[in-house]
């Protein structure tokens, strides 16, 4: 479904992504894990077109994304739920959801998808007139996910969805990622919360200093000596 081939990314003179390649198959949950600064978020931003790679290819269902304007990506079925939620803080919950469904089929089915999102997150329905910026951290993350779902994506990319949330909410968010996959959406997730992420992932890639150092199934990586030592603290 999504194939990343040998991408290299620079911020100024500093190379942050070194020759990263990986792929995501339809129906999978794939994780990129690693420490702060390993290049995980940059990888997602590169796929979204917010950052331009120096070299390499990104192919989604046969389309070279380098040729796609970043704002058109959502029409191809890719949605990026960014780090730190990035809600429209002065817009209501409902307006934030509308923003996820500006184009094509998503726009035509806006009402229906919204019902679905409200069913998944009843809290959002209760607060639909409230401004995005006045929600609690957990509710904001739900809204960010809901806004992404409004686009009826084929591939959803999550950047640190558990960041800053209480453990109970983290568990809820992870179980929702599972639901999303069951509904037929492929998931690519970037996380620092390595243990929980690996336990829900089909496959995962460990990033260190802008390189993929280990790859394997979620279960394999949970038992990997290096992963255990470096990320799981056992």
């Amino acid at each position: 479904m999504l194939e990343i081939k040998n991408i290299n990314v620079f911020y100024g003179d500093v190379q942050v992504i070194r020759d990263i390649s990986f792929k995501v198959n339809e129906g999978e949950i794939v994780a990129l894990v690693g420490a702060n600064g390993a290049g995980k978020s940059t990888t997602l931003k590169t796929i979204s077109g917010l950052v331009k790679p120096e070299s390499g290819e990104i192919i989604f269902n046969g389309t070279h994304l380098a040729k796609v304007e970043p704002y058109r990506l959502i029409e191809h079925g890719i949605v990026h739920v960014p780090e730190g939620r990035r809600l429209f803080v002065d817009m209501s919950v409902e307006e934030n959801l509308d923003m996820g469904s500006l184009k094509g089929a998503a726009k035509a089915e806006r009402e229906k998808t919204r019902e679905m999102v409200y069913k998944l997150f009843p809290r959002l329905l209760e607060r639909k007139k409230q401004l995005g910026g006045t929600l609690s951290g957990g509710e904001q993350q739900m809204l960010a996910i809901g806004r992404g779902l409004m686009s009826k994506p084929k591939l959803m990319m999550f950047d640190e969805p558990s960041l800053g949330l209480a453990p109970i909410l983290v568990r809820e968010i992870f179980s929702i990622l599972g639901n999303i996959r069951e509904e037929g959406t492929t998931v690519l997730i970037v996380e620092q919360n390595v243990k929980q992420t690996l336990s829900i992932s089909d496959r995962a890639y460990v990033l260190e200093n802008g390189r993929v150092v280990i790859e394997g199934t979620g279960a394999d990586l949970l038992n990997d000596e290096h992963v255990k030592k470096a990320y799981l603290g056992v």
Binding site: S48, L50, I74, P82, M91, M99, G100, L102
Partner: peptide, 16 residues
């Protein structure tokens, strides 16, 4: 309005 509030997030949502 979305562009004024967060242009990158707006781009991700399909706003030109």
């Amino acid at each position: 309005r979305a562009t004024a509030q967060d242009k990158d997030a707006a781009t991700l949502m399909g706003v030109n």
